[in-house]
Design a protein around this nucleic acid. Structure first.
Length: 557
RNA sequence: CGGGAUGUAGCGUAGCUUGGUAGCGCGCGUGCAUGGGGUGCACGAGGUCGCAGGUUCAAAUCCUGUCAUCCCGACCA
């Protein structure tokens, strides 16, 4: 490709809207442009990389025995109503009507679609296991799109769905997909870790998220210093035990708000109210701990747990807020294990009522103690080895065991060997394709621009003529350009009549692994080879150039 | 959805407080020179100042509304 005629609008300055590196660099280097909040165009360079990501995914999925298909982005509302997600998914789901006022959704995901496709076709144990996938544009009307490609409203995703007759079969694909994901992300040269995760609104049982390690990641990973344990912070179980002092219990007393000045946060209790399955609960945690809504949700085996205010509770109980007495209210109370060890502690309620000498056992009617708090750095690792540290991660993939969540609601059943009807065991496996593009840039850049891994680079070599007006340089460049094409070395040829500095800067930004510079040694048939990643450069005679490049590419891979 | 900020040429911005012909840098076009890390000189094109109302003789500037974008939070398969 001749750069003089290639659509790569590079920018010298950082667009003011871009905050994080991947967003800035993809804009500046001419890979993407924004069209609306969270909606982007992929320019030729960006689109090329996107396709390379897709190709790697296809190769690995196909190797795992998956079959590719393509489903529509636009989906009839009825399907979403069948699973209840038309309501459950909320405003995140982009909805529209056709000219006959029929309702549709722009696919945020495709469980409904695939299940409806499969339920009438895969009706016998003989047709399973089956593993289908697609690479499709997805739509989610995020409350707050941000960070360029990392959280968009329109984005490209690979989603795969498995269908099995039994749990064991489902477990086997799950394992295989975990392995496949390792292969894929390794080929992208990403630093990543699979973590234990929560299944969220999609519903299901086991699930792991694949996290690309990055400071701009929106998720926090709790990992062990000693073992390979890693989990989404919200999921990490707290196994910490607490020692209760044998201090004498003092009498519960109200405390003036101004005297509330605790020195030891571990002796202060924080009440949080939750609405779960239409019921209300009070959860007590220690002040120096954070209550974990996901654990609350999972404790009650609910789809959702919402934190609510004391006012909401009072309203619910139909009493004025000032008469609301949390100590002996009708509201069911649970507490984190740590609370059990509080002796003569303090507590303040939203109402402004504060108390000292609180002793949970005595003063509250606690139904049960359980693990309700967020894990913290320094806590023991749940697997008993090492302690917990935090890292930030970008979620680039997730694997789910769906079980029969969709097959039951949508009646996707099959006949087994005994002619008995059973729901299909399903799994789903996603990879955020466009997000992965951004994640790779987050991990592979320096102060001058992007540094692509060979597997994803839009071109392998960047051929630059220092002075196109110099006949010798020009002729040698043209000759090399044609050789590279013959050798199937994807080449971007900067034949523009720009200053050397401009070409170098653009080249650094764009991030092609190997740069070939045709300069003042052209007459001796020597060119300079510069490695983007290491900055090393070599003078190489053209008769050994191809071999040299191949060898360098191999080293980088 | 709560809090904050910003909308002036393709990009980055000044001007707004104190109303009076819209300015700069980069980029873009032409020419000459230059040709190994964003080169120099000259000439030139490009702007309904986000949009709509209002105040005023007069609005980029003041007021009201609205839209858009970004940041923090809540939320998020």
């Amino acid at each position: 490709m001749r750069q003089s005629n290639y659509f790569v609008p590079t920018l010298r300055e950082v667009p003011s809207d871009a905050e994080i590196k991947s967003h800035q660099l993809l804009l500046r280097a001419g890979y993407i442009r924004q069209n609306a909040s969270g909606v982007y165009s992929y320019l030729p360079l960006g689109f090329t990389v996107l396709r390379k990501i897709e190709e790697v995914i296809r190769e690995e999925m196909d190797r795992a025995g998956a079959q590719e298909l393509l489903m529509p982005a636009i989906q009839p509302a009825e399907l979403w109503k069948e699973t209840g997600r038309w309501e459950l998914y909320g405003p995140e789901l982009m909805r529209l009507k056709d000219r006959h006022a029929r309702e549709f959704a722009l696919g945020a995901t495709h469980e409904e679609l695939i299940t409806s496709l499969v339920r009438s076709e895969i009706n016998s144990y003989k047709k399973m296991p089956a593993l289908l996938y697609q690479i499709q544009t997805k739509y989610r009307d995020e409350k707050r799109p941000r960070f360029g490609l990392l959280r968009g409203r329109e984005f490209v995703m690979k989603d795969a769905y498995s269908f099995d007759t039994c749990e064991e079969g489902g477990d086997a694909v799950y394992k295989q997909m975990v392995k496949t994901y390792h292969n894929i992300f390794n080929r992208f040269q990403l630093k990543f870790t699979p973590v234990v995760a929560d299944s969220g609104a999609i519903g299901g049982e086991d699930t792991h998220e694949f996290m690309a390690i990055s400071d701009v990641g929106e998720d926090t990973i709790a990992y062990s210093t000693e073992s390979d344990y890693a989990a989404n912070v919200e999921m990490a179980a707290v196994t910490q035990t607490y020692i209760k002092s044998n201090e004498e219990l003092k009498e519960l007393r109200t405390l003036d708000k101004h005297d509330y000045n605790p020195t030891d946060e571990s002796q202060v209790i924080t009440p949080t109210f939750f609405e779960v399955n239409d019921k209300h609960y009070m959860i007590l945690t220690r002040q120096d701990h954070k209550v974990n809504g996901i654990k609350v949700k999972n404790y009650f085996e609910a789809e959702d747990a919402q934190a609510v205010t004391a006012e909401d509770i009072a309203m619910r109980l139909n009493i004025p807020i000032d008469e609301f007495n949390p100590f002996q209210s009708e509201i069911e109370t649970y507490a984190d294990h740590a609370v059990q060890a509080v002796v003569n502690g303090m507590i303040c309620f939203e109402t402004g009522d504060c108390y000292e000498h609180v002793n949970p056992e005595r003063d509250f009617n606690i139904t049960r103690y359980a693990d309700f708090r967020m894990i913290q750095e320094g806590d023991p690792s749940p697997d008993g080895r090492g302690e917990i540290r935090f890292a930030k991660g970008i979620e680039i993939g997730q694997v789910f065991k769906l079980g029969t969540r969709y097959s039951e609601t949508m009646e996707a059943t099959f006949l087994d060997e005994n002619g008995k009807s059973k729901p299909i065991i399903m799994g789903c496996y996603g990879i955020g394709v466009s997000r992965t593009l951004a994640a790779v840039v987050e991990q592979h850049h320096d102060e001058n621009g992007i540094v692509w891994p060979v597997s994803l680079a839009p071109f392998l070599v960047h051929l630059i003529t220092i002075n196109p007006k110099n006949v010798g340089q020009k002729e040698l460049s043209e000759k090399l350009y044609s050789i590279f094409q013959d050798e199937k070395l994807d080449v971007l040829y900067d034949d523009r009549s720009e200053r050397a500095g401009v070409k170098f800067s653009d080249s650094d930004l764009i991030g092609i692994p190997i740069r070939i510079i045709v300069g003042n040694k052209a007459k001796e048939e020597i060119v300079e080879v510069k490695i983007r990643k290491t900055g090393e450069s070599f003078d190489v005679p053209i008769n050994s150039l191809i071999e040299f490049i191949r060898q360098q590419l191999k080293q980088l891979a």
